[in-house]
Design a protein around this nucleic acid. Structure first.
Lengths: 164, 164
DNA sequence: GCAACTGCTTGTGAAGTGCAAGCAGTATGG
DNA sequence: CCATACTGCTTGCACTTCACAAGCAGTTGC
């Protein structure tokens, strides 16, 4: 019993796979925070996702082809979640979401460093980031990871600042 | 009793106001379909939103400052809903959503004319469209409405094709 | 061997969604 | 001027999703 598709409108179709409170949060944490394991996503998420919701989203996103799950060679119980190409191509969407939230949301803290970096960098930076994500998650040959490291650092810094 | 904000991350803040199944659908129909009245949004929506959900979203989006509601001079019972500037600036986000859905969604019909137009037009077209939306919804002086008409026509054509 | 950790499930209540019906106040056509 | 249709919603009820806390079998490190 698959749920029926409501319309063929691309905006609607995107909403049908990502239009809920948590899917994009999970992808954000994997993408910008490089959280690759279940417990990482569960405990180090700023918003505090519930464990059953996280399990459900990981399952659905994997089934939808946005994530892949692979066993961790270094630990028999660990699963490594990776972004697939469709998820990597969400970078422009997440960049626009960040830009909008930064501008039009009352409580958006002044130091939205990562969103600001992504906004100022624009499409060229997005593309560089996507290229690096492909290396990190799809097994392409790894370049010098400058953009990724910069964005991850900004993400972690904001997390730390948010808890202070 | 306001619901608490989960984090100051701009992506999360955007999701807190728009991260549900229907909010962006409503904005899309007002934006691209120029549906300005409750019954228009209710009956001519491709996805078939429920009346109570529509009422709730119109209320919440108005409270959030994304829509404005004004009485219709020509009909004492009608309310005209208009996009405010924050909603108009969702154009790039919706364009990216459409572009992603068109590429990465299995059931995305071949004729996603509107999404394709927005994708090919890129940021210059988005800006022209936003300018026209400002005239239409914020009372700025109206230009020749070429982009709006083109996108609306594409939207209606797809709706008609979807029902065939 | 034992505590800490692994991904994930279960139980329970609250919140959101989906569907059908209805309601008071207009407009409209004859 | 009266029946009819239309206006923006509301109500009631079933169903699904979400949220929070607790727990569980297997694995690892000491």
């Amino acid at each position: 019993m698959e749920k029926p598709i409501r319309s063929g409108c691309p905006i609607n179709l995107t909403l049908e796979t990502l239009g809920d409170r948590w899917s994009l949060i999970v992808i954000r944490d994997i993408m910008f925070g490089n959280r690759r394991h279940y417990r990482d996503l569960l405990n180090r998420s700023e918003e505090g996702i519930a464990s059953n919701i996280l399990a459900d989203r990981l399952k659905k996103l994997t089934e939808a082809g946005l994530l892949s799950a692979a066993p961790d060679p270094s630990h028999k119980q660990k699963t490594i979640y990776s972004l697939t190409e469709p998820a990597i191509e969400l970078v422009p969407l997440l960049a626009q979401m960040g830009a909008w939230g930064r501008r039009h949301t009352p409580a958006s803290r002044e130091l939205s460093i990562r969103a600001q970096l992504l906004e100022e960098g624009g499409p060229p930076m997005w593309k560089a980031f996507m290229k690096e994500l492909r290396a990190l998650h799809l097994g392409a040959r790894p370049p010098r990871r400058s953009v990724t490291r910069e964005l991850n650092a900004a993400y972690e810094a904001e997390l730390a600042a948010g808890e202070g």
